[in-house]
């Protein structure tokens, strides 16, 4: 979170709405530890990262859906055995759980 504070403050000053995605669990091999944070604003600007680049695109999509009101805050899982609609996974074979929420707190 520390590394994206400057971006958050700048976006808040510009009046943007912001979504926050944080790694809250990792099983098996995962590129980033719990706490890794990415922020996305309603103009589609991105700061921080939550993986080695494998799932960032899908996380940005989810964050923008959240900001458009098409998705509720909650946990999203990416991984090798993941059967949900996202056709992305981690090449390292691990599973990561992300909590995606609006920065409204």
């Amino acid at each position: 979170m520390k590394e994206v504070l400057d971006d958050i403050e700048r976006w808040q000053a510009q009046g943007h709405r912001i979504a926050l995605a944080r790694v809250v669990g990792v099983e098996g091999s995962g590129p980033r530890d719990p706490g890794a944070t990415m922020v996305v604003n309603d103009a589609g600007e991105v700061a921080g990262s939550v993986s080695g680049g494998c799932v960032e695109g899908a996380v940005v999509e989810a964050a923008l859906e959240l900001l458009r009101g098409e998705r509720d805050r909650g946990v999203i899982t990416f991984g090798y055995s993941d059967d949900d609609a996202f056709a992305v996974g981690l090449t390292c074979g691990g599973t990561i759980h992300l909590f995606v929420e609006p920065l409204d707190w």
Binding site: R22, V24, R73, G74, V75, F99, E101
Partner: peptide
């Protein structure tokens, strides 16, 4: 942060 359950 509550990530699952009531008061998510």
């Amino acid at each position: 942060t509550v990530v699952e359950g009531p008061h998510i």
